[in-house]
């Protein structure tokens, strides 16, 4: 609406070595304030070591109706999983 601050999606790295994960969203006038607000809203109990903010407008998402074409093809490709192959016990761990 008129003068509403834009919406930002917030991603937090919970611990060193982990990926950033989406935790929620918030409103802020710019990226710098979005990071400051994210620190107050999403890391009050040591939940993070790093914050990414992305303006929600800039995110493109797949649509629920694309579920079939996008994900069904992989269902029939069971050979992509290691358990598809029988390895003789004598061969040992592989």
């Amino acid at each position: 609406m008129k003068n509403e601050w834009p919406l930002w999606e917030i991603f937090i790295r919970g611990q060193h070595g982990m990926s950033h994960r989406h935790v929620g969203s918030l409103h802020a006038p710019d990226a710098e304030m979005a990071i400051k607000n994210a620190r107050d809203v999403y890391t009050r109990r040591n939940e993070g070591v790093s914050i990414w903010v992305v303006e929600a407008n800039n995110i493109s998402a797949s649509s629920p109706s694309d579920k079939g074409p996008l994900y069904e093809p992989s269902e029939s490709k069971v050979y992509r999983h290691p358990t598809f192959f029988d390895i003789p016990e004598e061969v040992g761990a592989m």
Partner: peptide, 18 residues
Amino acid sequence: GHGLYLYCAAETLGVTRD
């Protein structure tokens, strides 16, 4: 903070914060 989490959840349904 709890208010903000919830407002954001409501906004995903197509209503604005304002």
